[in-house]
Design a binder for these strands. Structure first.
Length: 261
DNA sequence: ATAGGCCTGGAC
DNA sequence: GTCCAGGCCTAT
């Protein structure tokens, strides 16, 4: 469940569950997870205390009393589970942070692609990231500067986390539909008025999803399901034209050729 | 710019 | 069986 709004919701769950808790043991339950969290690093966490849970874009940072931090990225399909003392772990549990209280914060990750890394005090915790997609600091002026001179299409540029942080494949399509902009448009050809529309659309999509932490990804009646994503061949909700799927930078893009220009 | 890799599960 | 998946990294 992992774009900015879903990671924000998850980080709130983690914050409520484990702030102030002391780590008793970190269990790595899937061998692939040791690529980011080797046995030694996991063992070294015992005894440390979680002082703060923060989120930056799609990263979650568990700050520890020692000055180290635990950086978690959900990638394609991660989520948190919280278990009470004695309770069994959910299906697809890959890493379990067990606390001295008996409670556990569990990384649930069917594909085992998530990363959990220990960052030592003073080390750079995160790669270079642009402004948060839901904030005013992600502005038309900022995006306009980033797009200038870029021959790359706007859709993949919205996925570039060093330009704007937190947008993923679904919300990129959703935002461009809202902005009525052709996802194939080269960055440098996007006019100032269109840049403004894109920024407004990204803000709107992010805010809507943040306001509905669970419902957005679910099927249903609440009118919140995707406008274009995963709707190939179905009628555009604006103009009734057929939604098309194309591949850009190796990822699916959904859009309406009739009303996105 | 594109392809492949990492993993597993679900849809077909 | 095949293809696809909410992300990101590396190699070509």
């Amino acid at each position: 469940m992992p774009e900015l709004p879903e990671v924000e919701a998850a980080s709130r769950i983690a914050r409520r569950a484990v702030r102030g808790e002391t780590i008793a043991e970190v269990e790595v339950l899937h061998p692939a997870q040791r690529r980011s969290l080797p046995r030694r690093a996991a063992q070294a966490l015992a005894g440390d205390r979680v002082t703060r849970v923060a989120r930056r874009a799609k990263y979650q940072v568990l700050h520890l009393a020692s000055g180290r931090s635990l950086v978690v990225h959900f990638r394609m399909a991660g989520d948190w589970g919280v278990t009470s003392p004695g309770e069994s772990l959910p299906r697809h549990s890959r890493v379990a942070l067990r606390f001295t209280s008996g409670r556990a914060l569990v990384l649930v990750d069917p594909r085992a692609l998530c990363t959990v890394t220990v960052v030592e005090a003073g080390d750079r915790p995160l790669p270079e990231l642009g402004p948060e997609a839901d904030r005013p600091s992600f502005s038309a002026a900022h995006l306009g500067r980033a797009l200038r001179d870029r021959a790359t299409a706007i859709k993949p540029l919205l996925l570039d986390q060093s330009i704007v942080a937190g947008i993923g494949n679904i919300y990129a399509s959703e935002a461009l539909w809202r902005a009525r902009l052709d996802p194939r448009r080269p960055g440098r050809d996007v006019q100032p008025a269109e840049v403004k529309r894109v920024v407004a659309a990204v803000h709107r999509v992010m805010r809507e999803a943040l306001a509905h932490p669970e419902r957005y990804y679910q099927d249903g009646e609440d009118g919140l399901r995707f406008r274009v994503y995963d709707r190939e061949g179905q009628p555009c909700r604006r103009c009734r034209g057929p939604i098309q799927r194309i591949t850009q930078a190796g990822r699916s893009t959904y859009w309406c050729p009739a009303c996105q220009r």
